[in-house]
Amino acid sequence: MEELDWVSIKSGLLDMARKRGAEVARIGDPALLEDAEPGLRPSELLTNVKSMIVLGGAAPRAAEWQSTRVEVMETVGTADRMTALGSAVARHIEETYGYYAMNVPTSTDQDDKAFLDFKAAAIAAGAGTASLAGPVLDPDHGFLYLTVILTTMPLPADGPLEQPACPAPQCIDMWEEQGTTPCMAVCPIDDGGCLGGEIDQGLVIKRRYDAERCRDRVYHYWTPGYQAALERALDEPDSRKRKMILYGSFFTRTMWSITYSGVSQGQCFECVRACPVGSKQRALQ
């Protein structure tokens, strides 16, 4: 069988992804994730997996970031486009080249565990680097939604980025002057927030993150909000109060958030809003 030109194929696939909306398109070596805990390894999802295609995009638009109404960002954040793009790329690989390919589900597995560590996959592919705030940050675009396609195609890997996007130079200056960074200042772990950390010689050397607290805020509505409201309603002995909970704005919004989960999962973006990485993309006329 004729040997395929993997460099050209890789270039074609990544171009296709960019044309369809990916801001970042990189290839990672799945072997780099094989020492992850059981249940998060690429080979557990696809036998003989050779490549991870990591796509980042569908970030909130500059105008949404600028909106004076917080409700805008609460109801327009979307990862749906990236999921659809990942599915299209996976199907293209199978139908065009005859290699297995799957878009890794963004839904969770049993016990709310992810099928794959998307952040680790993105870092391994160089689709960004880890940040104090939590999300993987692309040096140019900052926060992006991710999708990961696993395939048995042996595509040349790009590998991790050499320079971390976080902390940004402005954040290092702020740390040296004030002992905090924009993300830590907006959500300080020691003052009711979720983030803490230390920077030494321009590098993050320690990070503290209250995942439970963050989850409560980011997913204020959506399933966790629904569970809390339903529990409260069922515990309420007074039928009129129960009715108020069930027909109240909060309960209704949790239902909207669930049914529109593709566009309304997250309700807090404050650490990323304060982040200077990618801020140029958010500054328009």
């Binding site: 557990e44 297995y100 799957m102």
Partner: peptide, 20 residues
């Protein structure tokens, strides 16, 4: 689902990757 999903050793993957 893609062919890769059909072949996944993790059967639960198909539970949540029905179709698009």
């Amino acid at each position: 689902p893609t062919n890769a999903a059909w072949h996944s050793p993790n059967r639960r993957l198909m539970e949540i990757t029905g179709y698009d």
